[in-house]
């Protein structure tokens, strides 16, 4: 007896532009929350940003809670 087998699978393409945009957002967000030590604000405030550590302090509690290395 023959068996009928029908499989409908979406052929929709994933937009490359979306992948690139989301990839950039992923990397930037991960760096800001997990690893920034003044780097982002140093682009505007220079060396002082490495002392102030505004983003580091803002993300400090999440950094510890999410398992990122901190000090």
């Amino acid at each position: 007896m023959s068996e009928t087998r029908q499989i409908n699978v979406s052929k929709s393409q994933v937009p490359k532009l979306a992948i690139i945009a989301l990839g950039i957002i992923f990397a930037a967000g991960l760096f800001v929350v997990g690893f920034d030590q003044g780097h982002v604000f140093s682009l505007v405030y220079g060396e002082q940003a490495f002392t102030d550590l505004y983003i580091h302090e803002l993300t400090h509690d999440m950094r510890h809670a999410a398992g990122f290395p901190c000090h």
Partner: peptide, 13 residues
């Protein structure tokens, strides 16, 4: 910052 960082990390991951 806990909540804000959660949203940023959430958008990222």
């Amino acid at each position: 910052g806990q909540i804000l960082a959660g949203v940023i990390l959430g958008v990222s991951v």
